[in-house]
């Protein structure tokens, strides 16, 4: 695991540096927060540390809420969050003398996919919810063939699940017959080989399966960026005040709009901002 290795080396180097050259401790960035944003933060950290060897970046994924808490307690420099900061959190930050500044780093869009042979071209959010709560159980109810719907979801650990749950399920619980698999690739594999299947994946994983229109909108980066596509949301990073120009934190935060950063965002399955 490359990130682990770099993190370990970072910690070792830091403990050495802390004793001898205190000035170098300024090159440390701590990122904490959402598991959804985690892959972006990790990939950024790896890239940035490769370019600037004097900087140590540690990334933890304890969830959006915990990321906000860390920022308020000044336990981290960057809070990565898959939702905007709540007013109560902002207030708590102000009280603690922290000025949270919002940066949107990327857009997260989730495509709903079915088997290539499935004639169903589009579904609404309400129809999707009925499918995932097991109220709709046959494709014939949606204008498809007379087949049972095999409903596939990501495991409850994943950020993709979290996004889907908040944007589609609206707090309703998934039905008991829903199957859970461990990765985007596994969902694609299952949907690709199962004629009656429906699943949801990150935008980068639609090869070999058929993405359906959701509320009549196609799941492509353009519609995700404009939020026209309904299962899309911005991903945030919060810092304490605007990062100082020229500091390593500013350099790290600037990655999301740099061409290399955009490429990294695409590689980990999200949509970069234009």
């Amino acid at each position: 695991m490359n990130t682990w290795k770099t993190a370990m080396i970072g910690i070792a180097a830091l403990s050495l540096a802390a004793g001898t050259v205190l000035a170098q401790a300024a090159g440390k960035i701590v990122v904490d927060g959402s598991t959804t944003v985690g892959p972006i933060a990790k990939a950024f950290a790896e890239y940035y540390m490769g370019k600037h060897t004097e900087v140590n970046i540690t990334v933890s994924e304890s969830g959006s809420g915990n990321g906000a808490k860390s920022l308020i307690n000044s336990a981290c420099d960057v809070a990565s969050m898959s939702r905007p900061m709540k007013d109560s959190e902002k207030q708590a930050a102000m009280d603690a003398g922290v000025m949270p500044v919002e940066h949107i780093v990327a857009m997260d869009g989730i495509a709903v996919v079915v088997h290539m042979s499935n004639p169903v071209a589009g579904l609404t959010i309400d129809q999707l919810r009925d499918i995932y709560t097991s109220k709709t159980i046959r494709w014939s109810e949606l204008g498809g063939p007379d087949k049972p719907i095999v409903v596939i979801s990501r495991d409850t650990n994943s950020g993709t699940y979290e996004t889907y749950e908040s944007l589609v399920m609206h707090k309703e619980k998934m039905g008991e017959a829903v199957e859970y698999v461990g990765s985007n690739g596994a969902i694609r594999q299952r949907v690709m080989s199962t004629p009656g299947a429906i699943g949801y994946v990150g935008l980068a994983f639609t090869e070999g399966v058929k993405p359906v229109l959701v509320n009549g909108v196609e799941a492509i980066p353009e519609t995700v960026v404009t939020k026209e596509y309904p299962i899309a949301r911005p991903l945030y990073m919060y810092t304490n005040g605007e990062p100082e120009a020229g500091s390593s934190l500013a350099g790290f935060m600037a990655l999301s709009v740099a061409p290399e950063g955009k490429q990294i965002i695409e590689e980990v399955g999200f949509v970069p901002l234009p």
């Binding site: 017959a177 829903v178 199957e179 698999v181």
Partner: peptide, 21 residues
Amino acid sequence: VWMASGNASQIPTPWYNVLQP
């Protein structure tokens, strides 16, 4: 089982129906 059982937390109907996840 994690990869291939479907991981749907349901009791199959009827209980011996092994064709359900």
